[in-house]
Amino acid sequence: MILARGITKTYRIGPVEINAVDSLDVSIAAGEFLSIVGPSGSGKTTLLHLIGLLDTPTSGSISIDGMEAGDLSAKELTRLRREKIGFVFQEFNLLPVLRARENVELPLRYLKVPAPERYHRAMEALEKVGLGERANNRPGQLSGGEQQRVAIARALVTNPVLVLADEPTGELDTYNTCKVIELMRDLNRETGQTFAIVTHDPMVADYTRRIITLRDGKIASDSAGPEVEMRCDDIR
């Protein structure tokens, strides 16, 4: 589904040029449940942004479902993101002035889905992540774990083929980390949606089916994950 060939992303910090991602090849098939790990500065987030079409590589090419991202205009990239990709970011995910349900409805708004349908789909997504009861709360009234689950609901509400999560559990305790990953894995199993999770937490990586390890912008290893069976309630 995603095919990246020789992608490089160069940042210039003062006189120094840094290749955050360095001639990297990777392919992700539909229905995968994978994690991207590595020390900080290894290029995890940059890779995720490149795959998510938020950023364009300095060189190399990325295609999604056979479409070359480099051939598309900014407007077409926006449309592609809106229709095919769901994002969960590390920190800043929800608009503080909107209620949980309104946050989840936002991508549907951009897809011009009519209001009643928007409402039902948002409620459905919130119930899927176990937050049907909190639909009318503002982000400030939710815990960190709940906020992340709202963000996941928002990423899922458009039924994207690919969900990209950047440190979705970075701010969460072990129990909530487990619950969030469990939720993603269940959704992956039920709907066949593809999940790529950037994390520095080995426990999270151990739950996934494929682990891509980055080092200095290159792939250090790309192997099957242990896919440890989750028992979140035991952690508590």
């Binding site: 998510g52 938020l54 900014a74 407007k75 926006t78 449309r79 993101r81 809106r82 229709e83 769901g86 994002f87 970011f89 800043f92 995910n93 608009l95 936002l106 991508p107 951009y110 897809l111 928002r154």
Partner: peptide, 16 residues
Amino acid sequence: TQEIGLKKAIGAETGS
């Protein structure tokens, strides 16, 4: 700024 980035990431168009 971050809110704008978030909105654009999830599909907001320039016009909106």
